[in-house]
Design a protein around this nucleic acid. Structure first.
Lengths: 125, 125
DNA sequence: AAAATATATTCTGTTTTCTGAATATGATAT
DNA sequence: ATATCATATTCAGAAAACAGAATATATTTT
């Protein structure tokens, strides 16, 4: 059924935490610890939501060392969210996609940054 | 909260019956009895879903005689659905928006058509 | 005013989803 | 091999959403 598959995709992102995660991922990729800091939720909770997004085929993950990096599979889902934002009266500026600007293999979240002490853009936190 | 309002909009349409209703409405307007025939669900059920859509601010209604005509408030929600369709691998042709072509005040659903016996486009059913 | 029609609302049991705690796994460092 | 770190999974109770039945309301017709 057509409407069934559409609604199940929508249901997969019809939850604040998952929208937050997708916006935080943006067009980049991020490890769970980054998301933990970015959206201010417990690790287990984020992991759960990531699992839901993974099962819905919305994100993919790759492992690098002990970190697992998540990424949005089809970025047009960000447009979908943006459009949903417009429809619910949110200005485009408010709805900035704050994709993590991570230069492959390193996470810029507070936790990771503390370990990689002295990295160039440390001040951006 | 931004993600809260986005997700609640999405949640409002994250249900097969509601997607069906919105696609059936399309850019036109339709009475409940039309929807009843169009998506093949009981009246009370459709009414319930319409209530949800109304509460979410997605559709508006106007009364004309004993019929109540529903209409999508902002048609760009159809684009949203279309995009969700694409994302879940549904071709555009499959996802035709079959908006009811109703020429103001009369309903072309089987029920209504039976009463307005002899109407021009009766054969289209 | 009574009957009929179109639609809305309320209630209730059932299923789904959320939330949080506890624990498990897999990788690296020591 | 042990410890530690990052992340995943499982489980259980609470909350929310659904689905269906029954019933109410508003409008028109008679």
């Amino acid at each position: 059924m057509i409407s069934e598959s559409i609604s199940s995709l929508l249901r997969a992102i019809s939850q604040p935490a998952r929208v937050d995660i997708l916006l935080a991922l943006g067009t980049g990729e991020a490890c769970v610890c980054h998301l933990e800091a970015a959206i201010g939720q417990r690790q287990a909770y984020i992991s759960q939501q990531l699992m839901a997004l993974r099962e819905a085929g919305i994100v993919t993950s790759r492992r690098d060392g002990r970190n697992i990096y998540y990424q949005i599979k089809d970025p047009s889902i960000l447009d979908l969210i943006q459009q949903a934002g417009k429809l619910s009266g949110i200005s485009e500026s408010e709805l900035a996609i704050s994709g993590p600007v991570i230069s492959h293999g390193e996470c810029s979240c507070p936790k990771c940054a503390a370990e990689t002490a002295g990295c160039p853009d440390e001040s951006s936190f």
